[in-house]
């Protein structure tokens, strides 16, 4: 008995039930992009550092480039394609547009997924907590300040800018 190489998974992706078999070594990013054509999921560094490939599994952010598809069995998966269906997801998407929080757009899906998980786990996150949490996602266009502003708006906080250079204080 060598163990199954073809794994049966029963999962829910963006609210839709998905039941299928996948090779044991199939990475989640490849399953989502190639099998389900959810191409919002981007391959960036491929070593779980940049966050471009972030998706939510069971509500938690994961690096889909380093996550086995087999591990979504019995859990829900969310990508950007499913964000608009929830009020907090739609609000974040609008906030990113409003603030112009994307340039090339490559890091954006990962940023949105990270922001969505933050909104859910820490709806009262402070500006510092936003920065800390979002620092796990990299943007090569260095659009960071507007991204942080957008997350702040997505958290339902009023106008006011997070994205200012810190002053040299005490």
């Amino acid at each position: 008995m060598i163990g199954e190489h073809e794994i049966r998974i029963d999962t829910e992706v963006n609210g839709a039930a998905v039941s299928t078999t996948v090779p044991s070594h199939l990475l989640l990013i490849d399953f989502l992009r190639d099998r389900l054509e959810l191409t919002s999921v981007k391959r960036g560094c491929d070593v779980e550092v940049c966050g471009a490939c972030t998706v939510l599994v069971g509500g938690l952010p994961v690096s889909s480039c380093c996550y086995l598809t087999a591990d979504v069995d019995g859990k829900s998966v969310q990508t950007c394609e499913g964000m608009g269906a929830t009020p907090e997801g739609a609000r974040l998407q609008d906030a990113f547009l409003e603030h112009g929080a994307l340039q090339c757009g490559y890091c954006t899906p990962g940023m949105l997924m990270a922001a969505l998980s933050l909104v859910r786990r820490s709806p009262d996150a402070s500006d510092e907590e936003i920065r800390q949490y979002m620092s796990g996602n990299l943007c090569r266009c260095t659009g960071y300040s507007k991204i942080v502003d957008a997350v702040r708006t997505g958290l339902g906080r009023g106008p006011g800018r997070v994205g200012q250079a810190p002053t040299r204080a005490s």
Binding site: E48, G51, L60, P61, V62, S63, L118, S135, G136, N137
Partner: peptide, 9 residues
């Protein structure tokens, strides 16, 4: 530790 994704998993 690392980033939120590594911490979650």
């Amino acid at each position: 530790i690392a980033n939120p994704r590594v911490r979650a998993v």
